[in-house]
Nucleic acid binder design. Structure first.
Length: 835
RNA sequence: GCCGGUGUGGUGGAAUGGUAGACACAGGAGACUUAAAAUCUCCCGGUAGUAAUACCGUACCGGUUCGAGUCCGGUCACCGGCACCA
């Protein structure tokens, strides 16, 4: 008989709604455990089948923690500001707040449908004024501590969204969200000084329990490099400074390059004879997007600055200077020393412009390509006092020299740029500042927060790149909080990363109207013990929130340097590819698929999308199989960290397993004792499941539970045996287990739900069998197995080996030269032909 | 180009240096049934063989080891991140 999942799941969800077994209690004497999943963006499409993967995993971890006696905080909320909602609102003429409200209601229904143990009383919504009041408050603190500043600079501009993007939001030269073209545009923007925290963001990773690839990716993104700033004299009245990581190659410098955007260039222009040519080049460079600049990198372009001479400080020879867009204004000093012998880009440039190439590190052929040694043991040549040194010795020697001679200093640089923090859109937190002609930028007094997002007629951004709020003249024109004179409000809003940078703190104390979080709550719950989220947020949300947290630590709001003690990451859920060539039956069909769909046809699985018709809706899955089955399947699907492909057939297998569990109730003998037959496998399973959940190896934990159920069918079982299965299965399939717990009478007997019971303990001694099966090998080849008492010595094992017929065959005419015994595992006989 | 990761049956995937393929899906056979579904039992890497069995087998080449899917060196393929960062 199959169980009626629809009725059972509804019954227990209603029960939990009323009895609130997932309530977290601040200050409770039990040890605390704070488990966190990335709160969803409430899109109009509803929950994607990918969401339940991380949600279920951490739900299982926190359910087990509760059973282990922890006071668990497992909260949920909504990251509700953002462009898709705004775009949807524009298209359908509905206010974004209403769209958001409806989407949140739908998400909430779906999350409750899946039976997650969230403490719903702590639910937050970043677009709620009571919430964003504190987002604005944090921004004001950043402003007051000179961590926020307004700067006019070239920024990434999405031509489709008509909005500024942070560096982190530009992917392959296009907009991360819409795939639209990104161009460089000069705009005045609010910036946050994340670069001030670059070193700490690297250093503090060491003490965190993050999966390694997250640490590596963050470190690469921050991109620390050590080198030196070196100053060159010029004939223009001003010196120029370059940054280099290869100070050792200074003798090989044969020219200089300046970025087209460099301010010095503007200053020098009137004195440059070929000014018109240079200006034309600058204009051309400005027109190119970053993407185009990168695409065209095979072909170096540039213009010589006629009349400009730069003196190499070690050779004292004059060097020509060029302007070229291969030098970036945003990194180092915006000026580079050209060392064509040992940098491939410089080599290409020098070759194109006929500049001399000097070999200063021996080992390559600089007439053919730049020689960039793989290790630093290559030897210096043509380099004065460095000659004969290895690169390893020459770098510090030259650094020391430039410092002593007064034309250089050691320098550390980062690829990380300051965070572009303003967006010209409506659906975001208003920036709580006003601009006064007399006082400049003035913060709104904190007691006037939140600065509520006003109602507007139209949400569309303007073509000139102003926020929709700019049209609200009533709202824009205000008075200066400082002098009372006329002032204008900032009309840009914050990026959607703002509200998510600190939401985990609000969960600790969600109703506090005096502080963003009370000291008491923060000290009790902080830091988050386990945070799981997507790899795509590694250099966005995860980095941003670490930065904000460090700032809040510095100003005394939080007591830990880091927000999250542990970070894990889940793989994506893909759909089956309907056009996969593997599905074709004939060669002709295969060819047709490849002809029609190209490389798409070669992948067995692809991202789910409407156009491919392979989207799986959690509502449908729950309707057909139940929430417990969906939970179980999404955990059984494979290695948690790896990409996995949805398979509806495999879902059926999980449903079958739950039915088999359910049907055990009829077979179980009426005894609360653990049966002798099943004792060993029960203890082994507890050990396995306990360890696997802690390591997020849910697939093997479930496999162990399946094996246990198979054993119950083979051996028979008692209700006591079944209760052990129920307790272990409870985090995975909470609805069905509670129903079974009640039907088997345990709920009445214990006066508790299964989820409130103690997690079963195992006895190590009982996980060890009296007898073990050992492999018998001859010269490393398996010949058979023997069954011997556990921990048998060599003599006993050898006695048992005599019974293995294949060993006799293999030993024919052979003599044993060595035996290798691995206790309880195998015995390996090394033999040689007997003389 | 640089940095990370992955590669195991028809499929998803298991294996602290120690019996490769646990647990499932799909497939096959059988039991029950008037029948189907459901359920239960058994088989299921390849080649040869009726079988016992033998040989081969964890992307490829080599090495270390009594023993390698696992460790080391190299190659190839795919996935993710970064990319004119001096």
């Amino acid at each position: 008989m199959n169980y009626d999942f629809a009725a059972i799941e509804k019954k227990w969800q209603d029960n939990w709604e009323k009895t609130k077994p997932y309530r977290a209690v601040t200050g409770d004497p039990r040890p605390k455990f704070y488990g966190l999943i990335e709160f969803p963006y409430p899109s109009a499409q509803g929950l994607h089948v990918g969401h339940p993967r991380p949600f279920t995993a951490i739900d299982i971890v926190t359910r087990k923690k509760r059973m282990e006696g922890y006071n668990v905080l497992f909260p949920i909320g909504y990251d509700a500001f953002g462009l898709p909602t705004e775009n949807y609102a524009i298209k359908n003429h509905i206010h974004p707040a209403i769209v958001t409200r409806d989407n949140i209601a739908n998400f909430t229904r779906q999350l409750k449908m899946l039976g997650y143990g969230f403490d719903w009383d702590r639910c937050v919504n970043t677009s709620d004024p009571e919430y964003y009041k504190w987002t604005q408050w944090i921004f004001l603190q950043l402003f007051k501590h000179d961590m926020a500043y307004k700067a006019t600079m070239a920024v990434n501009w999405c031509t489709s969204c008509k909005v500024v993007l942070a560096n982190e939001e530009v992917v392959n030269g296009v907009c991360e969200r819409c795939g639209g073209e990104v161009v460089q545009k000069e705009k005045s923007q609010w910036m946050l000084r994340i670069t001030k925290y670059a070193q700490r963001l690297i250093d503090d990773l060491d003490d965190l329990d993050y999966i390694e690839r997250v640490k590596v990716q963050q470190k690469n993104w921050i991109g620390r490099s050590t080198g030196a700033d070196i100053t060159f004299k010029t004939n223009m009245g001003e010196d120029v400074t370059v940054y280099t990581t290869r100070a050792d190659t200074l003798f090989g410098t044969t020219y200089m390059v300046i970025s087209p955007e460099h301010p010095l260039l503007k200053k020098w222009l009137p004195q440059i004879p070929n000014r018109a040519e240079v200006e034309a080049y600058q204009a051309e460079a400005a027109r190119k997007s970053d993407f185009e600049r990168g695409e065209l990198n095979k072909d170096k372009t540039g213009v010589r600055l006629e009349g400009v001479e730069v003196i190499n400080p070690v050779t004292h020879k004059p060097l020509p200077m060029f302007v070229s867009d291969y030098v970036l204004m945003g990194y180092g000093t915006g000026i580079v020393m050209g060392v064509p012998g040992h940098d491939q880009r410089d080599w290409e440039f020098a070759t194109k412009f006929g500049l001399p190439i000097i070999e200063v590190v021996a080992g390559g052929d600089v007439t053919k390509e730049a020689f960039v040694a793989k290790d630093d043991s290559a030897v210096m040549v043509n380099s004065g006092f460095l000659n004969g040194m290895t690169v390893r010795e020459a770098i510090p020697a030259m650094k020391k020299y430039v410092v002593e001679q007064g034309f250089g200093k050691e320098k550390v640089n980062y690829k990380l740029r300051d965070w572009v923090f303003s967006r010209q859109r409506y659906w975001g937190e208003p920036i709580p500042l006003v601009n006064c002609q007399k006082c400049g930028w003035v913060p709104i007094p904190e007691d006037q927060l939140p600065l509520v997002l006003p109602e507007v007629e139209a949400y569309e951004p303007t073509d000139d790149g102003e926020s929709p709020l700019a049209r609200m003249t009533d709202w824009v024109n205000t008075t200066c909080p400082c002098c009372g004179g006329p002032a204008k409000r900032e009309t840009d809003t914050m990026p959607n990363w703002a509200g998510s940078s600190w939401y985990f703190l609000r969960y600790m104390d969600p109703d506090n109207d005096k502080e963003l979080v009370s000291r008491e709550a923060e000290e009790y719950w902080g830091p988050v013990d386990w945070y799981n989220g997507g790899m795509e947020h590694t250099t966005l949300h995860l980095l941003y929130s670490r930065f904000w947290h460090k700032f809040l630590y510095d100003i005394g709001v939080v007591h830990t340097k880091e927000p999250y003690a542990k970070r894990t990451s889940h793989g994506m859920i893909l759909g089956e590819n309907p056009y996969y060539v593997g599905n074709a039956k004939t060669e002709a069909e295969k060819e047709e698929l490849v002809r029609l769909h190209g490389s798409l046809a070669l992948r067995p699985s692809v991202k789910m999308s409407k156009s491919l018709g392979n989207v799986v809706n959690p509502d449908d899955v729950v309707k057909e199989f139940g929430a417990d089955t969906l939970r179980l399947y999404i955990m059984f699907i494979g290695d948690f960290e790896k990409t996995a492909t949805w398979s509806t057939n495999a879902v059926r297998g999980c449903k079958k397993f739950l039915d088999r569990c359910w049907n055990l109730m009829e077979l179980a003998a009426d005894s609360d004792e653990i049966s002798a037959k099943n004792e060993s496998i029960i203890h082994k399973t507890i050990k396995k499941v306990t360890g696997d959940i802690d390591e997020l190896k849910m697939n093997t934990a479930i496999a162990a539970l399946m094996a246990l159920v198979n054993a119950f069918y083979a051996n028979g079982l008692t209700k006591g045996d079944l209760s052990m299965l129920m307790l272990m299965l409870s985090p995975f399939a909470p609805h069905m287990v509670e129903e079974m717990w009640e039907l088997t009478g345990f709920a009445a007997k214990k006066g508790k739900m299964a989820m409130q019971m103690a997690w079963p303990a195992y006895d190590e001694a009982k996980t060890i069998d009296a007898n073990v099966e050992m492999a018998v090998q001859v010269n490393g080849k398996l010949k058979g197995t023997i069954n011997v008492p556990v921990d048998s010595d060599e003599q006993t094992v050898m006695e048992a080996v005599k019974a293995v017929e294949k060993v006799h065959k293999a030993m024919d005419g052979m003599a044993i030269v060595k035996t290798i015994l691995v206790k309880n595992k195998l015995i390996n006989l090394i033999v040689k032909p007997a003389k």
